[in-house]
């Protein structure tokens, strides 16, 4: 009998064919072209070799740009997690109407474009911006502080711009935790802090990992925010690629640094994924 029943737990792979075809056509193919381009030794084409990669990897300055971009992602992710987790936690602990309000506040930034949000930060961080005006009014400073075009400015602006990407997965993860666990923990004598550290935090780790992954990827590739808040004296990978491809028309080098960037990001992503797997084991233990 059982053999004649259709297995409803698996789906026909053919259903995924349109998406797969689109994926191959619009993602895999360009990526292959990009890879081929990166092996050209000069913009005019003709010769192939590893020149572009040697140029990038043998150059202190280029490696510095890559390093500072990856490090920027770490700082932004850390700050977003630090500020985002309490928001998600508050959302979980609030009554129904407040939940809606918090969710609206979290989602609100997503409803305006990144350019608008970034320009708002230009206004906030400028010499006559809100921060400097407030500090001057309180008499704490005489001359305006330089906030725009600083590393700190970029990190803060990116953290705000990418905040929803961190909060939403954590909200979902926290929502899946059975509230009885926390009660059980406190019945067994654990305080709030211990309950949080030993029960809530480990169980929400999958959400944290997903949020960090999204925030990190979005932060290091945020061309607009990086260049508007960072200015011309800070160079990150997206601007470096744009400059080589667009201004200098040096497509092979631009392709090579794109590939190097992609591989570095993949490495970071696999680290996050490994952490994610670990955390699942931890949560189920």
């Amino acid at each position: 009998m059982a053999a004649t029943l259709r297995d409803v737990t698996t789906y026909d792979l053919k259903l995924a064919a349109p998406l797969a075809a689109g994926f191959v056509l619009f993602f895999v193919t360009p990526l292959a072209i990009l890879l081929a381009l990166s092996f050209q030794t000069d913009p005019q084409g003709g010769h192939y070799g590893l020149t572009q990669y040697v140029n990038f990897l043998g150059d202190r300055f280029s490696l510095g740009v890559l390093g500072s971009t990856l490090w920027l992602g770490v700082k932004v992710t850390a700050l977003t997690l630090l500020l985002g987790y309490p928001v998600a936690w508050l959302h979980q602990r609030s009554p129904g109407w407040a939940r809606g309000l918090i969710m609206l506040l979290v989602l609100l930034p997503l409803l305006t474009s990144v350019v608008v949000r970034t320009f708002a930060w230009v206004v906030i961080l400028g010499r006559q911006g809100i921060v400097n005006a407030t500090l001057a009014w309180l008499g704490l400073i005489d001359t305006p502080l330089k906030l725009l075009y600083t590393d700190g400015g970029v990190v803060v602006a990116l953290a705000q711009v990418q905040m929803p990407l961190m909060v939403l997965p954590i909200v979902t993860a926290l929502g899946r935790i059975d509230p009885n666990f926390a009660d059980a923990s406190s019945v067994l004598g654990a305080g709030h802090w211990r309950t949080f550290r030993k029960v809530i935090l480990p169980l929400s780790l999958p959400g944290i990992v997903a949020g960090c992954l999204l925030t990190y990827a979005a932060a290091i590739t945020a061309f607009i925010t990086q260049s508007l808040i960072g200015g011309g004296q800070m160079l990150f990978m997206p601007m470096y690629i744009y400059q080589q491809a667009s201004t200098l028309q040096n497509w092979p080098f631009a392709a090579a640094i794109s590939i190097v960037f992609l591989v570095s990001v993949l490495v970071v992503v696999s680290i996050f994924n490994a952490l994610g797997r670990l955390s699942r084991g931890y949560a189920n233990a």
């Binding site: 230009v122 206004v123 010499r127 006559q128 911006g129 075009y149 508007l228 200015g231 011309g232 601007m239």
Partner: peptide, 19 residues
């Protein structure tokens, strides 16, 4: 130098902001 803008359009914003 108060700013090295990434493009000339940004200079306009900087004047507007008193930067």
């Amino acid at each position: 130098l108060a700013a090295v803008a990434a493009n000339p359009g940004q200079l306009a914003t900087l004047f507007q902001q008193g930067q």
